[in-house]
Amino acid sequence: MTATAHKPRSTPASSARRRFLVDAARTGGGVALLSLGVGLYARQAASLPALAVRPPGALDEPQFLGACIRCGLCVRDCPYDTLSLATLGDEVTTGTPYFTARDVPCEMCEDIPCVKACPTGALDHELTDIDDARMGLAVLIDEENCLNFQGLRCDVCYRVCPLIDKAITLEMQHNARSGKHAMFIPAVHSDACTGCGKCEKACVLEKAAIKVLPTRLAKGELGHHYRWGWQEKQKAGGSLVTPDQQHRYNLPEGERYDYEGKGLIFEESSDKVPFGSDPLDTLKRGMEGRR
């Protein structure tokens, strides 16, 4: 050992060692550069476009990209050919499954074959009831073009919703344009909407007014310190600050006001009606008031 240590620099042993070190540094440096490039590319490639929807039960996107091994078994077991694997050049990470609701929505199979097919659990096997799936959230994104917002009775998104009256309801509003009609406004409820996309697929417009978006885009989030006053009041069983004063109405005899929501009530016992059969009565009564 000591003998080799004292040998001059030009011995085969030391030059071989130097060559080895140079080679290792060269290769290591090259691979490190390559890794940096691929790693940075991976970060960009990880951004999922807003209209690409993952299959039911998909883990959150960062976890999904670590768990999905790009085998396509979910695609194969989808009976409606909804799913496809992203190819190189698509905006979705290469080889991962997704669907575009406007093209083919999820039909929400009760046995969820895509989840069962997943060998890795990138589609979570805990999901056994398809109604619990949260692929995204439908959002009525374009009120200016939605026919129902114009007072028409399109209702198609509401009618096709697999969870009709739970995920989408129709809320009546006054139609100010006509002045005398109602508008039936489709309202999506995030506690029921699975993001299947059937509403987006069925929207009759050239481009859908209702779209399934990733939940992170579709939902706002309340400030964590914020409380809804009326809920807190209910929890406390009464007003938390000054007790509410009940507003008093000065109503004619035989009329009263229901504070629980019914509004103005005419007592059953009273046969007095505001407008008699003879219009002159009303006029006369008005005159009495003046006097």
Binding site: V31, S35, V38, A42, L65, G66, I69, G95
Partner: peptide
Amino acid sequence: ILAATLLLALFTGTLVWEI
């Protein structure tokens, strides 16, 4: 490269090499 792909998976939490 093999080592690099495994390290990339470890540190990024995604299957970088599969891209």
